[in-house]
Design a protein around this nucleic acid. Sequence first.
DNA 1: GCATTACGCTACGACTCGTAGCGAAAGCCC
DNA 2: GGGCTTTCGCTACGAGTCGTAGCGTAATGC
Lengths: 239, 239
Amino acid sequence: MPRRGAGTPPPGDLPHGRDGNRRVYGRDMQSRSPASRTGRPRSATADAAILAATREALVELGWSKLTLGDVATRAGVAKTTLYRRWAGKNELVVDAVAELFDELELPDRGSLAADIEGVVLQFASILALPEARSGLMAVVAEATRDEALRERIRASVVDRQKRLVLEGRARAQARGELAAEPDPASSARTVDLIFDMVAGAVVHRTLVSAEPADEEWVHSFTGVLLRGLAGEAPPPADV
Amino acid sequence: MPRRGAGTPPPGDLPHGRDGNRRVYGRDMQSRSPASRTGRPRSATADAAILAATREALVELGWSKLTLGDVATRAGVAKTTLYRRWAGKNELVVDAVAELFDELELPDRGSLAADIEGVVLQFASILALPEARSGLMAVVAEATRDEALRERIRASVVDRQKRLVLEGRARAQARGELAAEPDPASSARTVDLIFDMVAGAVVHRTLVSAEPADEEWVHSFTGVLLRGLAGEAPPPADV
DNA sequence: GCATTACGCTACGACTCGTAGCGAAAGCCC
DNA sequence: GGGCTTTCGCTACGAGTCGTAGCGTAATGC
């Protein structure tokens, strides 16, 4: 499926001030990327309108019934404009959903347990949004057959969460709650493991089991994660 | 999207000897369900061929590019036959993927840790199949907007796994490895939590992180699940 | 003013969808 | 065997989506 070669990643003139190289505009990034600042610039407002329209369509139609023509109409742009910027439905939805994860933060709550509960609740609140539920799993499913798409998801969504795991772990080690792990390879494996356990549990709870990841659940989850199944028997109900 | 009302769930004459009411054939089950054993029976071999062709198409094309016409051609049946039995792509893929989970078992390995590692490895080996990777996440994504589909997935895929959690937990309590939990409501919550943690972690590892859930990873995961993050620092490398 | 790029619009062939209608096949029951 | 019922394969169909091409116009930098 060859794509047009007209893409030019604008350095930083788009509204969502995230890292630069996320929007790929077609497929290739280095064709004539560095400095082509002549001609009419791309409308930044159109960009925002398209992503907002995509989320709106995700809520109303879901993934499978979402069409790019419909998104274009909602956004008030021409369908061709959409195809000039994104390679297809997958890439568009990834970008639209990724913006939802911008607000993730990790305020220091004083203890590892409190930090975990805080960030898990944030993550759960995002996954509770219908536009995230419909879109995220679908693009993950598509990504199983598309290496580039997987990388795009990793850069836009996953890494932003994983940073929180790194940060929380460092804090806990500084507090003495977790033992330091000097070997960097072993440490990286541990971080990956924790990340898969935290994100996986929340995703599975909200999307597969279709039950809310509320405070009670998060509290129990954190108890098992920190102390294990055999730890304290039932976590105290001091929610 | 109104569907035909011709469906009649055959009691048990289909090859895969699973529980009865899984295949719904259209939408309604009680229209004239109980006994209509006259007329030409449905071809059981066609059923198996269709499901096998669906998995084959999932491997080659993935979810989004899979078309029912193509599946019908691969299976050697007419496209209309497909629509007479399944309401659409979602239901068909659920049934095709569900068959992959038939072989899940929980042999008694003597300890809770060994039991967990065994079942997680089985689950991971299923998720490593491309037909499972492509199909499962996609139908889960669709299910976020379709209550009936969610129930179908629960009955065909999820509950079969959850039974293993129940079984393993009962064994561990009999061995004295886990404390008994007399309150049934609290016990049910714990089982759900464990299930979301186990299945979620494996799914996230294999599908989102796109890394294999091999023995080393499973061993580390089991260690954290049983003893918690603060438990022993790095699990001993006696894999 | 000029080159360059993005935009809106229309039109297009190719494909998929899900259904309708038909005659033939494959079972049960008398 | 004859009759009844249901399924099957096949063809055809309107509706909808896809992704692109082509055109004239708008908005920038030099």
